[in-house]
């Protein structure tokens, strides 16, 4: 068997395993929790509303969380792959450009003004998205005015904007009422508890569009791995591709943060871990990271719901802990292997 066939088989196996992991994580998430649901019960629930508590738990709590986990985990991972590919910097993640800082500031302003109950709680998500868009807008404005060609300059501006937003958040937290303070603290730790089904549907659509965009630009991202000049020599319209992919990654991040808060580490660790298995070819990396990110977040959310049930841990705490430790162990093994 030739190398090409071996690589194709390996990629196919990895993608199939990621899909299987996503299925297993979703199955565990649907059946496990403070109240266990059996498969016959689930089949009965899928037959129609029988007015039971199990129906409510499945349709109003578990299924929406699995769908949202799939969307957010997948979208954050794809955003991470895109940004790491563009910047060719392994430490870049979806939150580096200050998108999450802007979203957090938006939520803080919303809570400080007492607008959180407007439009059945939709106001918080909208405020987060507006904050994320504001940061993105400022970033592109600075980039256009200063005619910045270097991505690293853009990255530096993003990091600085992130610090400014964090200071704004801290200021508002210092002057906030105690009950609002708790709201912002929990929001920054992230959660898949989202009662608004329209937002979940929107997140799924946007994640699917993000996956499609990642696949559409996979060839360009591969060329970017040689540097911007080399990509241009391969016929890639570097300026256009950079602008489009930055907007795509930022919108994906902004949408995820708006519906689920700041869930850390997924956009940083999942692309790295998947890259180690499938290699640096973005045609395999993008779908692999989407599936693995979705499976990882759904798995973490199931743990967050069940570890100290009936109480629930913020899922961002678990993604940070598990993702961080897995990443560290992989790094240590790599150092030993050298």
């Amino acid at each position: 068997m030739g190398n090409a066939a071996r690589r194709f088989n390996r990629t196919a196996v990895v993608l199939s395993l990621s899909l299987a992991a996503l299925g297993a994580a979703a199955a565990a998430a649907l059946t496990h929790g403070a109240t266990a649901l059996s498969w016959p019960q689930i089949v009965q629930i899928l037959g129609g509303d029988d007015g039971s508590a199990a129906y409510s738990i499945f349709m109003r709590v578990r299924l929406p969380r699995v769908l949202l986990g799939c969307a957010v985990g997948g979208a954050l991972s794809v955003a991470g792959v895109i940004l790491q590919g563009l910047f060719r910097n392994p430490l870049v993640e979806p939150y580096t450009l200050g998108i999450s800082g802007g979203a957090a500031l938006g939520v803080c302003v919303c809570l400080a003004l007492g607008l959180q109950h407007l439009w059945q709680g939709l106001a918080i998500s909208l405020a987060a998205f507006a904050g994320a868009l504001l940061v993105l807008g400022i970033l592109f404005l600075i980039s256009a005015v200063r005619q910045m060609r270097s991505l690293n300059s853009l990255l530096l501006f993003g990091v600085m904007l992130s610090f400014i937003c964090s200071s704004g958040v801290m200021f508002l937290m210092a002057v906030m009422r105690l009950e609002d303070l708790q709201g912002i603290v929990f929001w920054t730790m992230g959660s898949l508890e989202q009662p608004n089904h329209v937002l979940i549907a929107a997140a799924l659509c946007i994640a699917a569009l993000g996956l499609a965009a990642g696949l559409w630009f996979a060839r360009d991202l591969n060329a970017f791995s040689l540097g911007e000049n080399a990509a241009a020599h391969l016929g890639i319209p570097v300026g256009q591709v950079k602008a489009v992919l930055l907007v795509v990654a930022s919108l994906l991040t902004g949408c995820c943060v708006s519906v689920a808060g700041v869930i850390g580490f997924i956009g940083l660790t999942i692309p790295h871990l998947v890259r180690r298995v499938v290699g640096a070819d973005h045609r395999a990396l993008v779908p692999g990271a989407f599936l693995a990110g979705a499976a990882f977040l759904i798995g973490c959310d199931t743990l967050a719901r069940t570890l100290i049930a009936p109480l629930e841990l913020p899922v961002g705490v678990l993604t940070g802990l598990i993702g961080g430790f897995v990443f560290l162990s992989v790094l240590c093994r790599r150092q030993e292997a050298r």
Partner: peptide, 28 residues
């Protein structure tokens, strides 16, 4: 790009990439 190929001074190497995938980038 099909007529003129360039090895630049500042070209980067994606160290995690397979040699065959890397050579295949020339087909972009």
């Amino acid at each position: 790009a099909r007529r003129i190929a360039v090895v630049g001074q500042d070209d980067e190497l994606p160290l995690e990439m397979d040699v065959e995938d890397f050579i295949g980038l020339g087909r972009i």
